[in-house]
Design a binder for these strands. Sequence first.
DNA 1: ACAGTATGAACGGACACTTGA
DNA 2: CTCAAGTGTCCGTTCATACTG
Lengths: 364, 364
Amino acid sequence: MTTVDGGSRAGRGRGHGAPSMADVARLAGVSAQTVSRVANNRSNVEEATRQRVLSAMRDLGYRPNIAARALATGRFGTIGVISFSLDSHGNVRTLDGIATAAREAGFSINLVGITTPTHKEVNDAYTRLSTQAVDGVIIIEAEALDTPSLLLPHGVPVVVADGHGRQDHPVVDSDQAAGARLATEHLLGLGHDTVWHIAGPPDSNSARHRHAAWRHTLEHAGRPVPQVLFGDWTPESGYRLGAHLATRPEVTAIFAANDQMALGAMHALHEAGRTVPGDVSIVGFDDMPEAAYFWPKLTTIRQDFARAGRLCVDILLEQIRTRTPAAGVVHTVPVELVVRSSTAAPADRHPGADPPFPDTAPPQ
Amino acid sequence: MTTVDGGSRAGRGRGHGAPSMADVARLAGVSAQTVSRVANNRSNVEEATRQRVLSAMRDLGYRPNIAARALATGRFGTIGVISFSLDSHGNVRTLDGIATAAREAGFSINLVGITTPTHKEVNDAYTRLSTQAVDGVIIIEAEALDTPSLLLPHGVPVVVADGHGRQDHPVVDSDQAAGARLATEHLLGLGHDTVWHIAGPPDSNSARHRHAAWRHTLEHAGRPVPQVLFGDWTPESGYRLGAHLATRPEVTAIFAANDQMALGAMHALHEAGRTVPGDVSIVGFDDMPEAAYFWPKLTTIRQDFARAGRLCVDILLEQIRTRTPAAGVVHTVPVELVVRSSTAAPADRHPGADPPFPDTAPPQ
DNA sequence: ACAGTATGAACGGACACTTGA
DNA sequence: CTCAAGTGTCCGTTCATACTG
């Protein structure tokens, strides 16, 4: 019997000697059960006892061991988040919204980043998470997930954020279609004959939705549908595609699937000597904080990422509480057109009119 | 006696009947201990037995319960990250780097976001994390933490990323001073008499370092040190401050403490009819992906966030492995000046010279 | 003696019961 | 019979040790 000091801590090399309930109980002169009651705010503890326990906790610097708690209760107080690349503005804002909402609900976030949306990576991530370490999972930007049903083994609640393909799970998504329609109609309403589209990558669900809605709006209005251009969300791709569009004089209006590509496209337009919105109007998507300070200020579709993130958490928590894996319903978050200075009527429609954007400053 | 099917699962309402080692052992006809060996890749298991166990795991969809494992081993395979607002580009990039490095090392990330860097919030966050649920903690952008030592109770290893004040813990930080010096000297080298500075918020350590280095560089060069302007990292604050600077004709060179404020400032300059870099040169900090597509392309200081994130993880993991809470050393990540089109010699110094930025495109 | 395998504590906490006023 | 506090056993793993062929 290798007698250790104090006789308390066993010989097993547990690193830091974090105090346990038993330690608190000993110091307070009560049973461990009573300590547990105090820790969980139960009613049936006398006030004097509670105070004694609380001060013992303080003295020892006691912190509950959540691994033990999780083992005993089967709940973790943690939400797993699988996110494809934190490069995209939208994903980051959504994550932020999720983190905030989760914290308010007393949950923490277990983040698993993914660089490429291959099935292997997603499966690995999900496996990590499904190791019973989380109470539920939120998948952000589930691009290219053609077999999401394969992912979820044992009834771990799932919510998919931003970009819905099939609907095996509840989905929270901005109203992509409305946004694209708003953007396209805004441009059409300004007098443009048609609208060109710089789309996001074809394997992105949000990109697909925006693309489809743009096309439908054009068709519905009886306008010609120009060839789509596919970017990859980066400013660089917007620049490259914008440079191409700049060579075609018939292009007077562009709807870019996000603000970053819109920025790149505007840059290319400027370089080619085509003014915005004088020669070409452009609308973005997202309304990132920088958009209002682009030159010119970008007209765009504002997404409420914070609200989307919060909604994800609410729906997930509801599933967790009721232990009922909800079915595939799409929860739509409204979207808003923000008109700024990158859009105007086409030049030939208002020969003498003042340009809507002050031309006091010709930066060069 | 509410007879349950199979008679296995006990009455205590454990949610999903996740299979345990015992279940696997039963199916494979071995002991739970053997299953544990297989799960942990131990050597002393016969190949045939191992295969039998593995296929039993597959059949049952067995996943180890990491709460139980953590309870038994005292390790969690998780790194806690406390991050102030995911608004800032740098914080997000650093988080991304951390997440990537952690994943490669087989660790997951427990993210705790914080909206305001008050002590209360930080303490809450740290308390959450120190609940023995993480093996170590990384604090990103530890602004305004004047008493960080109070934060860490029981020898949980800590690394502070981006922005070091005092040094109670290892710190990983970009070479802020070198960056600010590079920016200032670049502008001075172009022939500007002095350089104005749009700083980050005074409670930010990185902002303070950039500010101080800018001042020293100016003093060292024997130049007048203009009044600093404090922003809050947002494009909006850059715009506001830029509008003020635009009214002063003596301002020919500005160093903004981040790219977003530089963007806002450029916008204000344009609106005031002052060209960039014709009338005023401007340098940013960060090199966010958009910076190369601002108008004009932004000269800036590039930070290697991915590398910083990786370094944080490496240092933290080393502490975890050796169980030795490292002391306060600052690990510096080099920084790089990226010269683009927002900087040039002052106008009066090169009366006939070509403007360095093509003035083919006067966007209006 | 050696290879594997079975056994019985912990780990820290929660909960269903039981006991004492 | 109500309310405070205590007892016992389990949650799923790991590890030290005892055991088997």
